[in-house]
Nucleic acid binder design. Structure first.
Length: 268
DNA sequence: CGAGCATGGTGAC
DNA sequence: TCACCCTGCTCGA
């Protein structure tokens, strides 16, 4: 369930719970045993997120690079027995972090982290990110905006939910060629993502509906989807648009399900 | 209880 | 473009 907000939240939790502490590192499942043994008993310095990548730094410039992929998860909680397949466990006397089903988990170094960071576009959750890099990049791209938003080299941290929701909120047709959108529109996309993703990080869920369209305001039932948030179009195929009532549509774009309102999203 | 699917990305072809 | 990674949930039989 990971878009960028999940990784940034996780990085903060790891730093708060394990930063400056001696950490027991293990790999109950066995796929990371060699690396875990080298780190076991080391002090965790800090954890950082860059887009959807997570970097957990230990003393001696040793860094665990984690990518959760589609199905991976990392959960923090009180000390408890290992249940199921745990690729990596970080533990103190009172706190445990279990990594399950990640796409990637490897021991690397600062050079590798820097190289990875260099391949990523600006991250709306990075306070130091420069949206000018995004604007310069998209000026030459003819692919649809709905495709470009998922390209981590152009913009990092955005996933399939934020893609659909930010395009709806700004009334943009997802198939509009990226370069056809005026710079001001791309700037508006960036600004909206900064707000939405910061809120997503803070709440631990994705909420994108404006106050006037909330379940309370519209006397409708709250949404109970996997990510738990209130959204306009994501996974609402054939349901009425919360703004105009037109059935929400779905199609494949960039290998992922795209959801949009054909009536509200005609502009660019 | 099995099939299908999912907020993601890689690598083979 | 597709198989695959590998987990957890939902849905239909």
């Amino acid at each position: 369930m990971p878009e960028g907000h999940v990784l940034h939240r996780l990085a903060d939790e790891l730093t708060a719970g394990f930063g400056g502490r001696v950490v027991a590192v293990s790999s109950p499942q066995g796929r990371f045993t060699t690396e875990a043994m080298m780190l076991d008993g080391s002090t965790l310095v800090a954890a950082r997120a860059r887009g959807k990548h997570l970097f957990i730094e230990f003393t001696g410039e040793r860094i665990i690079h984690v990518h959760l992929g589609l199905i991976g998860s990392m959960t923090l909680g009180p000390a408890r027995p290992v249940v199921g397949q745990v690729r990596l466990r970080l533990a103190t006397d009172t706190l445990v972090a279990d990594l399950r089903g990640p796409q990637g988990c490897r021991l690397t170094d600062p050079q590798h982290e820097a190289a990875m960071a260099a391949r990523l576009g600006p991250d709306p959750l990075d306070p130091a990110a420069d949206p000018a890099l995004l604007l310069a990049r998209v000026r030459t791209l003819t692919k649809p905006v709905g495709t470009v938003l998922l390209d981590q080299a152009v913009l990092s941290g955005v996933g399939n939910v934020y893609r659909a929701e930010v395009l709806f909120r700004l009334g943009i047709d997802p198939l509009t060629p990226a370069a056809d959108l005026p710079p001001a529109t791309w700037r508006a996309i960036w600004d909206d993502l900064v707000v939405l993703m910061a809120e997503g990080k803070r709440q631990g869920r994705i909420d994108t509906v404006r106050p006037e369209h909330t379940p309370e305001a519209m006397s409708r039932s709250p949404r109970t989807d996997d990510h738990g948030g209130e959204v306009y179009v994501y996974r609402r195929t054939d349901e009425p648009c919360l703004v105009c009532g037109t059935p929400i549509r779905r199609r494949d774009l960039a290998g992922r399900n795209l959801f949009w309102c054909p009536a509200c999203q005609q502009g660019h």
